[in-house]
Simulated assay, not measured.
Amino acid sequence: MTKAPARARPKIFPPPEFPPRKLPMFARMPPAVFAVALGILGLSLALKRALAEAQLPQGLADLAMGLAVGLWLFCAVAYGIKIARRPVVVMEELRVLPGRAGLAAATVGALAVAAVLGFFLPGVARVVLTIGLVLQTVLAVLMIRALMTAPAEGRVVTPVWHLSFVGFIVGALAAVPLGWVTLASVILWATIPVAVGIWAISLWQLVQRIPPAPLRPLLAIHLAPASLFASVAGLLGMTVLAQGMLVLACAITLALLVTGRWITQGGFTPLWGAFTFPLAAFASALLINGWGVAGVLVTVFALGGVPVIAWRVLKMWPAGTLATKTNAATA
């Protein structure tokens, strides 16, 4: 009589451990959102000037300015919570290129907020401008420290350096309407040599080697300093300098347009946020310096592109995709 085969015992798996701990709110807030927040702030400033040029009601621009300031404030509070939880995340963010770009856009954004508030609350704008310049200085020092301790490949000059070391010029844009003309002049003449150095080194690097496709959108940042120099010089009455910088901005814009397919070859990434603020700054520069029709047309073009890019980047934030793609630090 054959013995019945023993029935295999069912495998008993241990009960699952506690579910993975959820990160605290804003613990991995990606600083990359500040790039598009800065772009929206710049767009609202350009829209304000474009509507004035077209002699149209300012209500839409005022609404856009309110929304732009609200977006930047929300991002600032979120990142402030992250820093309060673990302050060292700032240095960790500065180790990677998207983090550097995002934090630089954050402090430049504070200066852009001051420029927006200058239309409505000059007293508050002066306070915000002062705080923004302090934050920009602190970030520049931290950036230098991060570069000194980085490996050789991490010390390469990139367009992001404009945001970190030339971004003070946005403070000059805010300072002129507030009556701080001397401050604006000092910032203008102090930042021009820095920008020229970055342009020269970047051009030499571009001739030496082709940047990888995912990083090419950052080349658009080169447009911002020329546009801002033209705007500040125009507000200060330095006509020759303003027109010269505006011609340079037009040349950079033309180069970006001609190479647009090559620059965007890598497809959409969060680094496309680099397109937003330079385009808006170029529109404002045209309007400030009397190129009204061109300025209005560029503003209309920006209205069609900047919000789309901003939305595509911002919607990655709640799902955590943006933090992953930009290597955001965790608090």
Rank of each mutant, 00 (worst) to 15 (best):
G234D: 05
Q136S: 14
L203D: 08
W262G: 04
V96C: 14
V160M: 06
P214Y: 04
L254K: 09
K3H: 13
L60A: 15
T182H: 09
I309N: 01
S202W: 01
A285I: 01
Q55T: 14
Q58D: 15
I131T: 08
S284Y: 00
T130A: 10
A190D: 12
E93V: 10
G123W: 00
T264I: 05
A4G: 02
I144H: 13
T264H: 06
L23Q: 06
P193C: 04
T130C: 03
C75Q: 05
E92Q: 15
A323M: 09
F13V: 11
A78G: 01
P307N: 11
M143A: 15
G123Q: 04
G42P: 06
G237N: 11
P87C: 09
W199I: 03
A285H: 00
V96Y: 12
E53K: 07
I221C: 04
D62W: 13
G70K: 02
G39Q: 02
A331V: 11
T149I: 12
Q205G: 01
T264S: 14
L279M: 09
L218Y: 02
M245H: 09
T330K: 13
L314D: 04
R312S: 06
A233R: 05
A331T: 12
T239L: 04
E92S: 10
E92K: 13
Q55H: 15
L97Q: 14
V298D: 13
I252N: 09
L254H: 10
W272T: 00
G237T: 10
V141M: 11
G295W: 12
A8K: 14
V296P: 04
V69K: 00
A101T: 07
K315F: 03
F34E: 00
L97I: 14
F34G: 00
L67S: 08
A230R: 03
P270V: 08
L271Y: 02
F120N: 02
A220P: 00
V156F: 12
G70Y: 03
L56M: 15
W180V: 02
T264N: 08
H222C: 08
V166M: 10
W262V: 12
V196Y: 06
A115S: 08
G244L: 09
K82Q: 05
I198K: 02
P30A: 09
G179L: 05
F168Q: 14
A78V: 02
V128I: 12
W311N: 01
V258Q: 08
G39I: 03
E92V: 10
L178Y: 07
L236W: 07
P31A: 10
V196N: 05
R100E: 08
H222K: 09
R28L: 05
G267R: 04
V247N: 13
L103C: 07
G237Y: 13
L142W: 14
A328H: 10
R7H: 11
L135S: 07
P193E: 04
V194P: 00
I309A: 01
S44G: 06
P318V: 12
A242D: 07
E53S: 14
V196F: 08
A68G: 01
A32V: 08
G320M: 10
A64L: 15
V232I: 07
T239N: 07
P19N: 06
G244T: 09
G273W: 01
A152R: 08
L73Q: 09
A274V: 01
P278M: 07
E53C: 11
L23D: 05
G132Q: 04
R126H: 02
Q265N: 08
L60M: 15
